[in-house]
Protein backbone atom coordinates (compact mmCIF):
# COMPACT_ATOMS: atom_id res chain seq x y z
CA UNK A 1 0.00 0.00 0.00
CA UNK A 2 2.97 2.28 0.46
CA UNK A 3 2.95 3.43 -3.13
CA UNK A 4 4.10 6.89 -4.01
CA UNK A 5 0.72 7.83 -5.41
CA UNK A 6 -1.10 6.74 -2.27
CA UNK A 7 1.32 8.59 -0.02
CA UNK A 8 0.96 11.73 -2.08
CA UNK A 9 -2.79 11.62 -2.26
CA UNK A 10 -3.40 10.51 1.30
CA UNK A 11 -2.99 13.88 3.07
CA UNK A 12 -5.39 15.56 0.66
CA UNK A 13 -7.85 12.72 0.91
CA UNK A 14 -7.64 12.90 4.68
CA UNK A 15 -8.22 16.62 4.74
CA UNK A 16 -11.16 16.29 2.40
CA UNK A 17 -12.72 13.50 4.43
CA UNK A 18 -12.21 15.40 7.67
CA UNK A 19 -13.96 18.40 6.18
CA UNK A 20 -16.74 16.14 4.92
CA UNK A 21 -17.11 14.57 8.33
CA UNK A 22 -17.68 17.98 9.89
CA UNK A 23 -20.21 18.78 7.20
CA UNK A 24 -22.06 15.53 7.92
CA UNK A 25 -21.95 16.30 11.61
CA UNK A 26 -23.41 19.75 11.27
CA UNK A 27 -26.17 18.90 8.81
CA UNK A 28 -27.15 15.86 10.85
CA UNK A 29 -30.09 17.50 12.49
CA UNK A 30 -32.02 17.94 9.27
CA UNK A 31 -30.47 15.50 6.80
CA UNK A 32 -28.94 12.05 7.18
CA UNK A 33 -25.81 12.43 9.26
CA UNK A 34 -24.88 13.36 12.80
CA UNK A 35 -22.20 12.86 15.40
CA UNK A 36 -21.82 9.12 15.11
CA UNK A 37 -21.53 9.03 11.33
CA UNK A 38 -19.38 12.13 11.17
CA UNK A 39 -17.07 10.75 13.80
CA UNK A 40 -16.69 7.47 11.96
CA UNK A 41 -15.87 9.28 8.71
CA UNK A 42 -13.19 11.24 10.52
CA UNK A 43 -11.77 8.03 11.94
CA UNK A 44 -11.61 6.56 8.46
CA UNK A 45 -9.79 9.66 7.29
CA UNK A 46 -7.23 9.25 10.03
CA UNK A 47 -6.94 5.55 9.25
CA UNK A 48 -6.07 6.31 5.64
CA UNK A 49 -3.53 8.86 6.79
CA UNK A 50 -2.08 6.36 9.20
CA UNK A 51 -1.78 3.62 6.63
CA UNK A 52 0.00 6.00 4.27
CA UNK A 53 2.30 7.87 6.62
CA UNK A 54 2.55 5.77 9.79
CA UNK A 55 0.97 6.14 13.14
CA UNK A 56 3.44 8.62 14.53
CA UNK A 57 2.37 11.00 11.79
CA UNK A 58 -1.24 10.59 12.89
CA UNK A 59 -0.32 11.22 16.51
CA UNK A 60 1.55 14.36 15.50
CA UNK A 61 -1.29 15.52 13.30
CA UNK A 62 -3.86 15.05 16.07
CA UNK A 63 -1.72 17.09 18.46
CA UNK A 64 -3.70 15.82 21.45
CA UNK A 65 -3.82 12.26 22.71
CA UNK A 66 -6.90 10.66 21.12
CA UNK A 67 -8.20 9.60 24.52
CA UNK A 68 -8.00 13.22 25.64
CA UNK A 69 -10.12 14.19 22.64
CA UNK A 70 -12.61 11.53 23.59
CA UNK A 71 -12.73 12.69 27.18
CA UNK A 72 -13.17 16.28 26.04
CA UNK A 73 -16.09 15.15 23.90
CA UNK A 74 -17.74 13.50 26.87
CA UNK A 75 -17.15 16.68 28.85
CA UNK A 76 -18.83 18.78 26.15
CA UNK A 77 -21.75 16.38 25.98
CA UNK A 78 -22.25 16.58 29.73
CA UNK A 79 -21.93 20.35 29.58
CA UNK A 80 -24.62 20.46 26.90
CA UNK A 81 -26.87 18.53 29.17
CA UNK A 82 -26.09 20.59 32.23
CA UNK A 83 -26.62 23.93 30.51
CA UNK A 84 -30.31 23.44 31.01
CA UNK A 85 -29.75 23.70 34.76
CA UNK A 86 -28.91 27.38 34.37
CA UNK A 87 -32.35 27.96 32.86
CA UNK A 88 -34.16 25.93 35.48
CA UNK A 89 -35.36 23.28 33.05
CA UNK A 90 -34.78 19.50 33.34
CA UNK A 91 -31.47 17.89 32.40
CA UNK A 92 -30.83 17.65 28.65
CA UNK A 93 -33.60 20.02 27.62
CA UNK A 94 -32.73 21.46 24.21
CA UNK A 95 -31.91 25.19 24.20
CA UNK A 96 -31.84 27.22 21.00
CA UNK A 97 -30.47 30.64 20.03
CA UNK A 98 -30.53 32.27 16.61
CA UNK A 99 -27.77 34.87 16.34
CA UNK A 100 -27.50 36.70 13.02
CA UNK A 101 -23.96 36.78 11.67
CA UNK A 102 -23.32 38.71 8.46
CA UNK A 103 -27.00 38.77 7.70
CA UNK A 104 -27.39 35.00 7.98
CA UNK A 105 -29.42 33.54 10.77
CA UNK A 106 -27.44 30.68 12.36
CA UNK A 107 -29.34 28.28 14.58
CA UNK A 108 -27.19 27.27 17.56
CA UNK A 109 -28.33 24.88 20.21
CA UNK A 110 -27.26 22.80 23.14
CA UNK A 111 -28.37 19.84 21.06
CA UNK A 112 -25.75 20.64 18.46
CA UNK A 113 -23.14 21.00 21.18
CA UNK A 114 -24.15 17.57 22.39
CA UNK A 115 -23.77 16.15 18.90
CA UNK A 116 -20.30 17.67 18.68
CA UNK A 117 -19.51 15.90 21.94
CA UNK A 118 -20.67 12.61 20.46
CA UNK A 119 -18.51 13.28 17.41
CA UNK A 120 -15.41 13.93 19.50
CA UNK A 121 -15.96 10.87 21.69
CA UNK A 122 -16.29 8.61 18.68
CA UNK A 123 -13.29 10.12 16.92
CA UNK A 124 -11.12 9.97 20.00
CA UNK A 125 -12.04 6.53 21.26
CA UNK A 126 -12.01 4.68 17.96
CA UNK A 127 -8.87 6.42 16.72
CA UNK A 128 -7.14 5.48 19.93
CA UNK A 129 -8.26 1.87 19.53
CA UNK A 130 -7.09 1.77 15.94
CA UNK A 131 -3.78 3.41 16.75
CA UNK A 132 -3.16 1.09 19.67
CA UNK A 133 -3.83 -1.94 17.52
CA UNK A 134 -1.77 -0.67 14.62
CA UNK A 135 1.09 0.16 16.94
CA UNK A 136 0.99 -3.43 18.16
CA UNK A 137 4.47 -4.54 19.19
CA UNK A 138 6.25 -1.70 17.45
CA UNK A 139 6.95 0.27 20.57
Amino acid sequence: MNTLIFRTVAPFLTALMALFSIFVLLRGHNEPGGGFIGGLIAVSALAIFGIANGISAVRRALWFHPMAISAFGLFIACLAGLMSAAFGVPFMTGLWVYPVVLGVEIPLSSVMLFDIGVYLVVVGAITSIALALEAGDDT
Binding site: G28, G34, A77, G81, V111
Partner: peptide, 23 residues
Protein backbone atom coordinates in the same frame (compact mmCIF):
# COMPACT_ATOMS: atom_id res chain seq x y z
CA UNK B 1 -36.96 19.87 18.80
CA UNK B 2 -36.42 21.84 15.57
CA UNK B 3 -34.93 18.96 13.65
CA UNK B 4 -36.04 17.37 10.40
CA UNK B 5 -33.98 14.18 10.72
CA UNK B 6 -36.14 12.32 13.21
CA UNK B 7 -33.52 9.64 13.91
CA UNK B 8 -30.90 12.18 14.83
CA UNK B 9 -33.36 14.16 16.93
CA UNK B 10 -34.18 11.03 18.90
CA UNK B 11 -30.51 10.31 19.46
CA UNK B 12 -29.34 13.73 20.55
CA UNK B 13 -32.48 15.25 21.97
CA UNK B 14 -35.40 13.02 22.96
CA UNK B 15 -33.17 10.20 24.20
CA UNK B 16 -30.09 12.33 24.82
CA UNK B 17 -29.39 10.90 28.26
CA UNK B 18 -29.24 7.40 26.77
CA UNK B 19 -26.78 8.58 24.20
CA UNK B 20 -24.70 10.21 26.90
CA UNK B 21 -24.43 6.84 28.59
CA UNK B 22 -23.57 5.16 25.33
CA UNK B 23 -20.75 7.49 24.40
Amino acid sequence: AHGANVVNVIIVDFRGTDTLGEI
